[in-house]
């Protein structure tokens, strides 16, 4: 019974982790390619990596500089 519950649990939680992972990866690729960002570049690295869920979003909204 316990094992059964664990299995269900992962099927539910895994997509959330996957989405968060994709967000971090895409943000990191974009960050690495960017010539300059709004504010110091290294700061955005820590925000993307360490701020849960919201880090990559914050980077996409505020960190990317226009062109």
């Amino acid at each position: 019974m316990q094992e059964f519950f664990d299995a269900i649990n992962w099927a539910v939680i895994a997509p959330v982790l996957v989405i968060q992972g994709i967000l971090i990866i895409i943000a990191m690729i974009d960050w690495a390619k960017a010539d300059n960002t709004n504010g110091p570049k290294w700061m955005w690295f820590f925000i993307i990596i360490f701020v849960n869920i919201f880090g990559p979003i914050l980077y996409f909204i505020f960190g990317r500089s226009q062109r």
Partner: peptide, 24 residues
């Protein structure tokens, strides 16, 4: 190019499933 096509859908998915999962 500015990745909106990637991050906006993903964020909207997260927002959509937040409450159904946490309430369950």
């Amino acid at each position: 190019h500015n990745k909106k096509w990637i991050w906006v859908p993903l964020v909207i998915i997260l927002i959509a499933i937040l409450d159904p999962i946490s309430n369950y």
